[in-house]
Nucleic acid binder design. Structure first.
Lengths: 195, 195
DNA sequence: ATGAAAGGTTAACACTGTTAAGTAAACAGT
DNA sequence: ACTGTTTACTTAACAGTGTTAACCTTTCAT
């Protein structure tokens, strides 16, 4: 295993087990048994390293979504499955999920859009399914890509509130998720033109 | 103006004008013309100061929502107005909005739930309106509070995607917002039992 | 007048990301 | 076999961070 790969592995482990706050260059270096500056031989800076982790996380998230894709199932069912898979992944891998939304383009001007475009590719998967649903005339949406984004955004909001511990203690998490899913799917799917 | 108030004011100005990254204790102190350690006379630590700013921001956000409340308007219209007000506030005061979701309870164990409960009071406003709509039988929801949270979560997701610059460059922001609003409101409002 | 409290200060600790300069081993060309 | 260069790494240092301990003054109450 190359040092670059080891740094990535150690970083990810540190991130997951100890949290983002503990993921410092020196700590990573220590666990990889090299000096802190060696990291800079393989990553331009911490954001660059973070970005590599983000890309891995996006891949994992995408893989988790892909797993539940089942074209035989019909659009509505498929969307719900994906939405549930999205939420499950986020709640089961909180740190991995959260770094995806942690690094900002404006805070790392050295990395222009291209990298973030790549990151966005997760949306394409969703857009593809929506498009397919449209083609099969199960749904009537103006623009599959926009709807993929709104769906994604809504799901992100739901998991974000939970992960940020902003959910009222009076509300059971399960019930919140079910209600949110119901609202989101309904709001999306009823674009189906009345046949 | 007390030093405590001045620290808050300077912090807010620094946060808004220079961004969260530039808001360091020493910089705040410099602008308030005191030593950095003086801040600790009025705030236990940086998170405590941040929490005070968050509370102010929540108040501002709530005030912005209150402004558009118009009970003569009917539930659907009112919800849409509030949703738009929420998005507008977030986009027009990005730094103020973002710190609301920045500090985490688990990262500041010294502040237990009580403070965050207070922060949550913004949701109550929304829940109130939904309850009222329910009372007037304009809507049939099982639990107004849960629905207030799901609505809030979805709105947060929408602004979050925009503020985090995760929106695909192919998608015009305006169009994204309109589509999201449409989906969110529809998903929520069609719980109205068919009369 | 004396003691205590209020409201500040300076110095220091243990961190952080990052850069510059240096070293030691491996390799290539003549 | 002796060069010169590249590769992979290190140490030392800079400038910054949040935070604590210890120390001054000034104000105030008894």
């Amino acid at each position: 295993m190359s040092l670059r790969e080891e740094i990535l592995e150690v970083s990810r482990e540190l991130l997951i087990k100890e949290g983002f706050g503990k993921m410092s260059m020196r700590r990573i270096a220590e666990r990889a048994d090299v000096s802190a500056t060696s990291i800079y031989l393989y990553f331009k800076n911490k954001d660059d390293l973070l970005l590599a982790l983000i890309e891995e996380s996006i891949e994992n998230l995408k893989a988790a979504l892909m797993e539940v894709v089942d074209v035989s199932k019909g659009l509505l069912m498929q969307l719900e499955d994906m939405a549930r898979a999205y939420i499950s992944y986020a709640l089961n891998h909180p740190q991995e999920y959260e770094i995806i939304y942690m690094v900002r383009p404006e805070e790392m001007p050295r990395y222009p859009k291209e990298k973030f475009m790549n990151i966005r590719s997760g949306y394409e998967l969703l857009a593809g399914i929506i498009s397919e649903g449209h083609a099969r005339e199960q749904i009537d949406v103006e623009d599959a890509l926009i709807n993929a984004y709104t769906l994604w955004a809504q799901l992100h909001g739901v998991v974000s509130v939970i992960l940020n511990k902003r959910l009222d203690t009076r509300i059971p998490q399960e019930q919140f998720i079910e209600q949110a899913l119901e609202n989101i799917i309904r709001g999306f799917v009823l674009q189906k033109s009345p046949v």
